[in-house]
Design a protein around this nucleic acid. Structure first.
Lengths: 160, 160
DNA sequence: CTTTGCCTTTGAGCGCACTCGAACCCGTAG
DNA sequence: CTACGGGTTCGAGTGCGCTCAAAGGCAAAG
């Protein structure tokens, strides 16, 4: 059904590169709420994973080093990102950009590994984070009001 | 009309401390959109300014050191924050929490000092920042969706 | 066979925004 | 008078999250 097994990594690399000419680097809808596109190859190189997620290969390796991520290797010892790995990266990115510190994220993912009985702690963690997101939304609304106000007066002469 | 001149700094310090017992550290509405309360003393000590803005005295001194802020001194050489200084601190804080780097903020405030003819540059700067705020709002909405999803399934068993 | 280019690991370095420490100065309370 | 709880300066230290450098391995292209 899909051609993953029939293409070499470098062929896929080229295909992706071609595909990305002249379009937005990441289609936001593709990975909205962790949904990955159906035609995503089963196994991706680090460069492909970086391209798709918008992170750098450096950052992906870093995340793995600190234990946020576990990624398989191919026969040459190269990292090979499967759909689950990609989903986790997207999840991590969502929480990171919403201000969750790496330590907290790390803790949450440890809880997930530890199994079902940690659900209450994970819930508490997420609830706390939701509160923080909502606080940030309020802060941003205020900042937006100030910024719009300055824009309205063409750069703002009054009270810097 | 107000009692500023009639109270010593230490009396005002005590009054503020008393006032802040058992209430939220900062009333968000008070300083919404740079509006400061009318009964704010004309001159505040660094501790009072810190209390009101939610920054630390360390941070206020730091901001002054790097040129973000200019603050007068009293006869003893102590910093004395007037309404204009407070308004600027609130402005700085709004832009900081919305992710504007100190360097950019610094540049903007320099432009303000340089006078009216820099208005176009300030406008451009603010427009760019508004775009960034709106991007952040989109990111936060996505993060909120993910977080709510996890909360809905009590800590999230599926796809970490 | 060699070049080219992406991959690997490890440890070190960097930029930002504070945050702290040391040493010293005011002014009020006891 | 002296102690104390603020304040002052300056330079240095911290924590976070990457980001890079060095030294080397694999594999397709010329």
């Amino acid at each position: 059904m899909n051609t993953t097994e029939l293409l070499t990594a470098s062929e896929r690399r080229q295909a992706i590169a071609a595909h990305h000419q002249g379009m937005a680097p990441i289609d936001p809808d593709l990975i909205c709420l962790l949904e990955l596109p159906d035609d995503l190859p089963e196994q991706l190189t680090i460069a492909e994973a970086a391209e798709i997620t918008g992170l750098t290969a450096h950052t992906l390796r870093y995340y793995e080093r600190i234990g946020l991520l576990r990624v398989g290797r191919d026969s040459a010892g190269y990292r090979s990102y499967d759909r689950q790995a990609m989903a986790r990266i997207v999840f991590i990115t969502r929480l990171r950009v919403s201000g969750m510190p790496i330590g907290t994220l790390s803790h949450y993912l440890d809880l997930v590994e530890q199994g079902e009985h940690t659900a209450p702690q994970r819930l508490a963690l997420m609830q706390e984070h939701r509160d923080q997101i909502q606080q940030q939304l309020r802060d941003l609304q205020l900042a937006l009001a100030v910024t719009d106000y300055k824009i309205a007066m063409y750069g703002g002469t009054a009270a810097p």
